[in-house]
């Protein structure tokens, strides 16, 4: 490496004179996002997995409905001669158990939120871990534009990836469901809504992940809290439903994953919050972690 050359005179024009702009910060965060190979591989894997789980769900739900039509029960019990059902009856019976057809494009979403949520934690926690954050905050000393730019990159990537995965899943599910005599189309109630809303849910989880990474400044810690929030909490609160008393039965639907999941559904369910209420609750959960994250980022030393 030869560096004995005296530096050539550098003019301000060579380095540009535009100064800091939000567009520039956004472009910077995009460059950072796309310049890590691990991120690209992870997104590809997520896409394949989400579509794969969706296709599997289409097949599974098709068999369940077919079995309902022929035996009148998803799990035929020996000895009892079941009555047959029409397709509409079978679909209604399945839906009563939470097995709906219109939700198939979003069937792989649990995987999506796990990976994209973790990726969001890593997006900022790895900067704290490696020291990159000091470069970022020196270039953007007001700090919040950098956070906002990261959030926008994450929301757009999460939304687009989920939307495309949902569309592909939808297309794949058409021939699979057709095999069982079920008609899957955009005309079906809740399909278009679900395809467009799935990305909103995943983007929201990504925002929560980014905020957790900002608060904890630690990749492992952030991912653990995220998993606890989205995978342990719903399970735990479901067990709470076994505790006598009405109150405990309702706790489960207020946790972020259940409220957020409800946001993707259509129609009324007995003893359950409506989809728009689920959406508002999920938004509240996002704010509960994002606001402290923003305040901490602005005030704490890096």
């Amino acid at each position: 490496m030869s560096t004995t050359t005296v530096p050539s005179p550098s003019h301000a024009s060579a380095a540009g004179t535009h100064g800091l702009s939000f567009g520039g910060v956004l472009r910077s965060e995009w460059i950072k996002f796309r310049s890590l190979r691990s991120t690209k591989l992870l997104l590809l894997f997520t896409f394949v997995a989400v579509v794969g789980v969706g296709a599997l769900a289409a097949w599974l739900r098709g068999t369940i409905i077919q079995s309902l039509m022929t035996t009148g029960s998803a799990r035929p019990e020996g000895g009892v001669h079941a009555t047959t059902m029409t397709l509409a009856q079978a679909e209604a019976a399945a839906q009563a158990q939470g097995i709906n057809i219109y939700g198939i494009p979003n069937a792989g979403l649990q995987l999506g939120i796990l990976v994209l949520g973790s990726l969001a934690v890593l997006l900022i926690a790895s900067e704290f871990g490696t020291g990159m954050i000091r470069s970022t905050m020196t270039a953007v000393p007001r700090r919040l534009p950098a956070f906002a730019a990261k959030a926008i990159v994450l929301v757009v990537v999460s939304y687009v990836l989920t939307l495309v995965a949902a569309l592909v899943t939808f297309l794949i599910s058409i021939p699979i469901l057709h095999h069982y005599g079920i008609d899957m189309s955009f005309g079906r109630d809740g399909v278009v809504y679900g395809i467009f809303m799935g990305g909103v849910y995943v983007a929201g989880v990504a925002l929560i992940g980014l905020s957790l990474g900002t608060l904890l400044r630690n990749s492992a810690g952030g991912i653990i809290v995220l998993v606890a929030l989205f995978f342990v909490l719903p399970f735990g609160t479901q067990l709470l439903g076994l505790v006598p008393g009405d109150f405990w039965k309702y706790v489960n639907q207020y946790v972020p994953s259940v409220a957020g999941g409800r946001m993707l559904e259509v129609g009324h369910k007995d003893a359950f919050i409506d989809p728009h209420v689920g959406g508002l609750l999920f938004l509240a959960w996002i704010l509960v972690v994002t606001i402290p994250a923003v305040i901490t980022l602005k005030t704490r030393d890096v």
């Binding site: 800091l20 702009s21 910077s28 470069s135 020196t138």
Partner: peptide, 21 residues
């Protein structure tokens, strides 16, 4: 103050982008 998995070029490019350099 560098992300260990990013190339030097991309590191500098991302910093430059903030100021449209």
């Amino acid at each position: 103050a560098v992300h260990t998995s990013r190339s030097a070029y991309n590191h500098l490019l991302s910093m430059a982008a903030t100021h449209n350099i």
